[in-house]
Amino acid sequence: MLLVVLVAYALFAASTTAFTRSANIATAVPIVAVVVLAVALWPLRPRPPRLGPDAGHPWRAWVCVFGAVVAWELAEYAARGSRADHPTLSSMLDAVNRYYGLKVIVFFLWLYLGAAIVRRGGRRQRRARSEAQ
């Protein structure tokens, strides 16, 4: 059900044009929804997932890859020359967003990530509550 709503909203929102009032509203609504849901559903004192002593370094590869992405993004952003010579994630996604079908996919992925953030942030509390009952 949630997926259907997200797809429908992405279909609508992707039809708006950046720098217009309709695009502002279409983007602001999910942002406000995620903030409201996070405040309502997330525990005041969150408990991060605990891993066993033999878990090794489960985050290291992720930190390295995302660190490299951020470093390259900053290097490209600060580099002298045209944006065409030094593309950033934004400029590449701007090119993608010129096509309605691709913009629908990008908007859907953004919405899906927002929903996943809300769900993951309150997951342990929901699990603990259901175990207590």
Partner: peptide, 15 residues
Amino acid sequence: SLARPGLVLERLATG
């Protein structure tokens, strides 16, 4: 030994 993407997101969302 690597955390799955969902667990990475959960770690970020519970800090």
